[in-house]
Amino acid sequence: MDSAEKNLIELSAKGNVEAFETLVQAHQKRVYNIALRMTKDPDDAQELSQDALVRAFVAIKKFRGESSFSTWLYRITMNVCTDFLRKRNKAVVVSLEQGAAGNENYNPVQLPEKSPGPDELTEKKQLKEMVKQAMDLLSVEHRQVLILRDLMDLTYKDIANTLNVNEGTIKSRINRARDALKHIIIDREELFKDYVVKLNRREGNS
């Protein structure tokens, strides 16, 4: 923890709102994005991310620097979100076996049947949309690890700390989550595989 951050934390603990706002400036977008991917709804996400930030402000006296401030903040955010999901809908988990087919909200992205031409931006956008929709179909547990890993860029160790689960479990959970994501996409979109291969070739990514 650098001294500026430490200073801001101390001021926040005394109830200084401005200090807290400066402190979370770099994190609030991520907090919002955790909530957005967890709840899939921008309004809920705004409400819950602010809930999490307010809770952190109130509880910051308790923060002792055992983990990084961001890990602590993400943990609160995850707790706020999972509590909300449990409350809203006890059956929020969509397992892979039930699959995307059973979900009426699933609206598969139509991939172009032929080569879409040189417009790579459009392709990327489509791929992003497809992954986003598939992500929404994952179980809460799988979504959690992918948000923390692939959106927040946390290490396995930090994810383990955030979710209070051991690192080995995180490792296999991430692997299973990505596998589940891949299957949702591939099962729905036969074109996906060709598409990926083509995209990779073009980007020299393989």
């Binding site: 609030q28 994005n33 602010q50 992003k128 992954v131 959106l151």
Partner: peptide, 22 residues
């Protein structure tokens, strides 16, 4: 290669804060 593609798409899912958030 499939995994890389999915992960790079996930990396880009981050969205901007809504207006008036702060």
């Amino acid at each position: 290669s499939i995994l890389k593609t999915i992960v790079s798409a996930l990396n880009e899912l981050e969205e901007e804060l809504p207006d008036g958030f702060e």
